[in-house]
Amino acid sequence: MRSLLAFLALALTASAATAQVGPPTSQRSCSANRQLVLKDGSVVLDTGPMTYARFVRSGAECLVDQFPGPAWVPSSNNPQCFIGYRCKDGSDDF
């Protein structure tokens, strides 16, 4: 029974990690990248060699103490494609 649970946990982890793998943003058009974020609400994308980032549709996908900041990525047809937002940590220091 324990080995079955371990196998199921491993299978779920592997499938979740596989779902995030895709071509870099630079190999998709700007609108295709933007549509991924709009459709899923929150997505981790490959932004370059060994570089990944999480992008969100709105601040609703950020944690309570975070705020959305505009995000741009390189795309196949635009070196600075507005893709949505990245959640940034808030600061109480003014």
Rank of each mutant, 00 (worst) to 15 (best):
G90C: 12
S75M: 04
V43N: 00
C81I: 01
V64Q: 14
V37H: 00
S26H: 04
A16V: 07
S26E: 08
D46A: 05
V44I: 11
G84N: 01
K88W: 07
P49G: 11
P79G: 11
R57S: 04
S26L: 06
V37D: 00
A71Q: 01
D65R: 04
F67V: 06
Q27L: 14
R34Q: 10
G48T: 10
Q27C: 03
G69C: 04
L10E: 04
A60N: 15
R2F: 13
W72G: 06
S91H: 15
S91W: 13
D46Q: 12
S58F: 09
A32N: 08
A19C: 08
L45D: 01
V21L: 15
Q27P: 02
C30D: 08
L4Y: 11
V21R: 11
V73F: 01
E61S: 04
V44Q: 04
L4K: 12
D92H: 13
C62Q: 03
R28Y: 09
N33R: 06
P23F: 04
A9L: 13
R34T: 09
S42G: 08
R86L: 03
S3L: 14
D89G: 09
G84L: 00
V56S: 02
A53K: 11
E61F: 03
P68T: 07
T47F: 07
P79H: 09
A14F: 14
S29L: 09
S76M: 12
S42F: 01
D40Y: 13
A17D: 07
R34V: 07
W72P: 03
L5M: 09
V56P: 05
Q80E: 15
F94M: 07
F7L: 15
P74M: 05
A71L: 02
G69R: 02
R28Q: 08
R28E: 06
K39C: 03
M1A: 11
K39G: 02
R2E: 14
T47P: 00
K88S: 12
I83D: 00
E61C: 00
F7M: 14
S91E: 13
Y85E: 03
T13G: 05
N78D: 15
S26M: 05
Q20L: 13
S58T: 12
A6W: 13
P23S: 07
R54M: 03
M50G: 14
S3M: 11
S91Y: 11
L12S: 09
G41T: 03
C62R: 05
L12I: 10
R57Q: 10
D65L: 11
P70C: 06
R57I: 02
P49T: 10
V44L: 04
S76R: 10
P23W: 05
G59R: 03
V37C: 01
Q35G: 00
Q80T: 14
A71T: 02
C62H: 04
S15Y: 06
S91T: 15
S58E: 08
P49D: 10
T51Y: 13
V56N: 03
A71P: 14
N33T: 08
P49E: 09
Q27D: 13
Q80L: 14
A11F: 10
S75G: 04
N77D: 15
F67K: 07
L5C: 14
T51V: 14
L63N: 06
G22N: 12
S3F: 10
P49K: 09
F7A: 15
D89E: 11
T51S: 13
